[in-house]
């Protein structure tokens, strides 16, 4: 089964989308008589310190991460395509300006930037909005790396014989761009998309571990992992408290599946 990673990912996404039906407890209901209990029939993965259903939180949290990480990756790849192509096309001045800014963006202390952005945001921001902003910011900050690759790719294409041939055939520049350049950097963009996907998932997890991601009570992988940090019992008795490790296991699984499918893509192209 060559497509196994993709199939498994699709199944995961499907399960996550069914979260409201699979986990009717919801992610924020506090069952205060069942604090930090182990797995039971009602709570498949037990409950957390506030009596919230871990299974529901995992499903809803994964749903957010699995849906929004691709969105963030798409944003950053789109930006990278526009900026990178612009850099490759434009005159020396604009190009060096773009290179300069991408250098700056790459060396930015983005964590600090995120802190500032979150600090500047109004306080009464909804959890739903906060997660969108989190991923949007990730996407906005993620353009620099792919943009350089796109720029290099476009330059290579510009030097190619078929672009020259197109010129010699009198094909208009805009047509050259949309018909001869864009379709040929598409594989590059797709590759960048797949590469940045796990990066964004992990970034969100890191941010969450620092308390900078989605706001309570909405779960995300980041928030769930952050909880784990205070769960020393999970580390002391990994087998007895396996349910606590579920978010990590799922995160590792998804990231590895993404890597696998990406490798396959690379191998086939």
């Amino acid at each position: 089964m060559k497509r196994l990673p993709e199939i498994l990912l699709a199944v995961l996404v499907l399960v996550m989308l069914c979260a409201p039906w699979l986990a009717p407890n919801g992610y924020e209901k506090q069952s205060r008589d069942f604090i930090a209990v182990g797995p039971t029939k009602d709570f498949l993965l037990g409950t957390d310190a506030l009596g919230r259903d871990r299974f529901a939180r995992l499903l809803f949290g994964s749903r957010l991460s699995l849906l929004l990480a691709p969105a963030a990756a798409a944003v950053s790849v789109f930006l990278a395509a526009v900026i990178g192509a612009l850099a490759a096309f434009s005159g020396k001045r604009l190009e060096s300006a773009i290179i300069f800014f991408s250098d700056v963006a790459l060396s930015l202390p983005w964590l600090f930037l995120l802190l500032t952005i979150r600090g500047a945001m109004p306080l009464d921001i909804r959890p739903e909005v906060s997660i969108v902003i989190t991923f949007l910011v990730l996407g906005l900050l993620g353009w620099a790396g792919p943009a350089r690759i796109v720029r290099a790719g476009v330059r290579l294409i510009l030097k190619s014989d078929y672009i020259f041939q197109a010129k010699a055939m009198g094909i208009a520049p805009s047509r050259t761009f949309f018909r001869y350049i864009l379709p040929n950097i598409k594989p590059l963009l797709i590759a960048q998309f797949w590469i940045s996907l796990p990066v964004f998932i992990l970034s969100e997890a890191n941010l969450g571990a620092l308390g900078l991601s989605v706001s309570e009570p909405m779960p995300s992988w980041g928030n769930l992992l952050k909880e784990l940090e205070s769960q020393t019992s999970a580390l002391e008795h990994p087998l007895a408290n396996w349910q606590l490790l579920a978010p990590i296991v799922l995160l590792v699984a998804v990231v590895s599946l993404l890597q696998l499918s990406q490798q396959r893509l690379k191998g086939s192209s």
Binding site: E28, A49, L50, E216, S230
Partner: peptide, 12 residues
């Protein structure tokens, strides 16, 4: 942690 939990309980 304590304050975050208290806040979540107030929320609920």
């Amino acid at each position: 942690k304590v304050r975050e939990r208290l806040a979540a309980m107030i929320q609920a």
